Every structure is written in C-alpha cells, then in structure tokens.
Amino acid sequence: MGRGKIEIKKIENSTNRQVTYSKRRSGIMKKANELTVLCDAEVSLLMFSSTHKLSEFCSESTNQKKIFDRYQQMTGINLWSAQYEKMQNTFNHLSQINRNLRREIKQRMGEELDGLDFNELRGLEQNLEEALKIVRGRKYHVIGTQTETYKKKVKNSEETNKNLLRDLVNIEMKDEHQVYGYIDDDPNSYEGGLALANGGSSMYEFRVQPSQPNLHGMGYGLHELRLA
C-alpha cells in the first residue's frame, strides 16, 4: 500500500517545518549531484531556510561566480547593476558629507568665509563661542586637578619634614643626657679618674689596655672608659 499524497502547503508547526526542510534539502542536494555526474551538467543551487541559513551546491567543474556570469550573458540581465547603483549613491552621499565637514573645519579656522552671509557668519561665531567655553572649562578643570595634586604632595612633604625634625630633636636630647668618664683600673683611686661630665642616667664602661704587653710594668695598667 503506497503512501498517501501529501498536500503541498506551508507547514505551520515550526519544528515540523524545519525537519521537513532538512530532509528535502538533503534529497535535492543528492539529485543535483547525480545530475552533475550523470549528465555532465553544470549545476548551481542556493537555498535559504526560514531561519536564514544558507545551503549551496555547485558542480566541481565550475563555481558560483562563473555560473552567475554565464547567466548574465545568456539572459542579458545585469545582476550587479542595482547593487552597484546603490553603492554609487552611498559613495556620493559620503563624499558630500566629507566636503561639508572639510569646509566647516576651514571656516572654523577663519578660511573660506567669503561666500557666507550675515546669518551664517553669526551662527559660526556662536558655534566658536560655545566651543571656546567648553575648552576653557576643560582647561580650568585640569588646572584645578593639578593644583589639588600639588597641594597633597606639599602637605605630605611637610608632614615628612616635621617627623624628621622631631626624630632629630629626640636624638639630640638623648645625646645631652649621656655622660662620658675615664676611670682608672683602681676604683678607689680618685686621681686616676678623669670625669668628663657629671651626672647622667646611665654609665657605659670600657676597658683600655696598652697594645704593648711590656708597658704594664712601666705603670701603664688597664683602664676603663665608662659612659654614664
């Protein structure tokens, strides 16, 4: 029993429509390849799905461009004239915009003003004044930012200088309270003690010994240097 005849109409269900397209696309691609091999024909096939996906086939002996060129020769239809005309119109439009911008730039520089009437000159003057306000505002903003940055640097330098001065004063005050004394080896010998300073919160003691051992017998004994 053969399959029933399928009514040819648009498939409303999008999923079923896509499945049917995929199956029949494979079938028509297969038929196009068979036609190329069996009949030595040059076949070109382009298809776009409802989701705008391109599928194409072209015989191995040619390419799409050659097919289109032969089509134009055989039919006399220029496939590119409309596109070329559109591109030419776009180019002319952009060229006009470029010329207008160049003329406006020159006029802002004080050139090509001869053809302007009073209203055009007044409008140009107002545009320049507005531009000048914007430039000045930006300049003052930059100056203000740099000034604040310099103020912060100066303040940091002053703080660093104050800290260094405070540390220096503390060091000098510590030096003033240190007392240095030269003490003889005999702690009971007053004559042998040479006090270089009086008072002091602490004393540091050093022992002084002659570098020549034979000097001990000549009265050069061990001595101590104390820092008080």
Rank of each mutant, 00 (worst) to 15 (best):
M1Q: 09
K5R: 03
K9R: 03
K10Q: 15
E12R: 10
S14A: 09
R17K: 12
Q18E: 13
V19A: 07
S22F: 07
S22R: 12
K23N: 06
M29S: 11
E34G: 08
L35S: 13
L38E: 13
C39S: 14
A41D: 08
M47T: 14
F48V: 03
S50R: 07
K53Y: 03
Q64E: 06
K65T: 10
F68S: 06
Y71N: 01
Y71P: 02
S81A: 14
Q88Y: 02
Q88V: 00
N89L: 01
T90P: 01
N92A: 14
H93W: 05
S95M: 12
N98S: 12
R99I: 11
L101N: 13
R102F: 08
E111N: 11
E111I: 14
D114S: 03
E120L: 06
L124D: 02
E125K: 14
N127T: 15
E129A: 10
E130V: 10
L132Y: 06
K133Y: 01
I134E: 03
G137W: 00
R138K: 12
K139P: 00
Y140Q: 15
T145V: 07
Q146L: 08
Y150M: 09
V154K: 04
K155G: 05
S157L: 15
E159P: 00
T160F: 11
N161Q: 10
K162R: 02
K162A: 11
M173Y: 11
K174C: 00
V179G: 02
D185P: 10
D185Y: 14
D185T: 06
D186I: 14
Y190R: 01
E191I: 14
E191Q: 08
V208C: 06
P210E: 13
P213H: 09
N214H: 09
H216Q: 03
G219T: 06
L227Y: 11
L227I: 15
A228I: 15
